[in-house]
Amino acid sequence: MKISKLEIPHLKISNEDIIQAMKKIPGYLDITPSDFLELYNGALAHALERLKSAIKAEHVMETSVVTIDENSSLTDAAKLMADHNVSGLPVMNAQGKVSGILSEKDFLKHMNTQEQPSFMHTILTCLDTSGQCLAHKLKRFKVKEIMSAPPITVTMETPVLEVADILEANRINRVPVLDRQANLAGIIARSDLVRTLS
């Protein structure tokens, strides 16, 4: 289920709940249970809307972002990712804007022939080709030749729940956050979202 599709049915209350709550209030309440239910549902829908947009990308993003130049070699990129223990990087062009995303998936794609290669596919191919390292052929590529472009990005004002939907819909693990001038302001990974929700 999409997080931003959190809906009223999960928070439904019954007539009996209302009657019990009314009994706890000593005074006479000038309202019928069904009027109250209508009010409650309206207020709940309003509150959900408010919550959905309350936490924005800028509140959860990681601001110290490791980036790589689009003309770097894949060896440098791999080293950077290994050193910082990240599985993906925003790629910057000469103008200092984000021109793409480089992730482990992009490496795997170019080591295999499959459209959706997995780590295990790569292992299998490696084993089949009797010891020859598939990564070797990546040496001649530059970052911009294998990166995913154009990049999927969000703005600082994008509600976090919408960010979650974007990650899910595009099957990606991180998304760069851009400021109003389209400069890189931060990055949100799936793990950042988990931390926010817990």
């Binding site: 009994k23 000593p26 005074g27 309440l29 309202i31 019928t32 069904s34």
Partner: peptide, 9 residues
């Protein structure tokens, strides 16, 4: 069809 509110104390 609605329910009447509870009696007061």
């Amino acid at each position: 069809g609605g329910q009447s509110p509870p009696v007061v104390g």
